[in-house]
Design a protein around this nucleic acid. Structure first.
Lengths: 126, 126
DNA sequence: CGCATACCCGTAGATCCGTACGGGTATGGG
DNA sequence: CCCATACCCGTACGGATCTACGGGTATGCG
């Protein structure tokens, strides 16, 4: 029977405590959707690049990432739709930069911090 | 032609600058894999719950999340494989808690901070 | 020893995501 | 006016990811 958990909570107190403070599944989905946007190599590197040089057009972005325009274009589409980046059109060229309201703690503590974390491997399964 | 970007960089200087400092695609994949682990409603709530009450068995976790054992079991498997949570077996019951080396900044600045961010909607596409 | 519980694992199915491709629009130059 | 450039969009395909299901192992109880 995998469909249901046990009927007798082992720690009813802790279950109630967690249950009361836990974000709802809908709230969790909302905040994880933001996280999902950075949880992709291409998008993460796009954000890194824009953080480094402030502004870059699509073609240069593809060059900097050693990627192609398709991948970068798709990444920018999602980032733009989410409002994490904004664009400025000058002639035929479209320049992208991080949005003014780009989450500072997210950039500082997620992206940059994760570089450090990825260098510290996790212990094996128990 | 979507396969290649333009041959003439608009800002060769910025391209070179970004290219030199950018994490490689492999490094990016490694750090985004960590991010991907939290970028799921079930796993994020599991981590939230364990952060709140320190220790919880699988069944109680499913109760607290109002989920089923399958979803929680799968979430714990990935979290455990990645070394983000550890388990302790007492009799038939398996208790889970956050790993000792669980990234503090990740918990503090990603999970908790994202709750605030999710409440500030992003502007529309430009 | 036989049964129920608590959890784990492997597999199949559905669903989502990222990439590749073709075509379209707007700008700029000859 | 015609063509090349820079970028965007819609579609189709391959791959990854999550869920659901059946079965397996270990513990505790009578």
């Amino acid at each position: 029977m995998s469909d249901a958990a046990h009927a007798h909570p082992v720690d009813p107190d802790r279950v109630a405590h967690a249950r009361a403070r836990l974000p709802s599944r809908d709230e969790a989905a909302q905040l994880t959707s933001v996280l999902s946007l950075m949880a992709d190599p291409t998008r993460a590197r796009v954000l890194f690049a824009l953080d480094l040089v402030e502004e870059l057009c699509v073609g240069d972005l593809a060059l900097a990432l050693e990627s192609n325009e398709d991948a970068v274009g798709y990444a920018l589409r999602l980032l733009r739709t989410a409002g994490l980046v904004v664009n400025r059109k000058q002639g035929r060229v479209v320049y992208y930069r991080l949005a003014d309201g780009f989450p500072e703690p997210l950039r500082e503590h997620c992206l940059r911090q994760l570089v450090v974390l990825s260098e510290a491997p996790a212990p094996d399964d128990g």
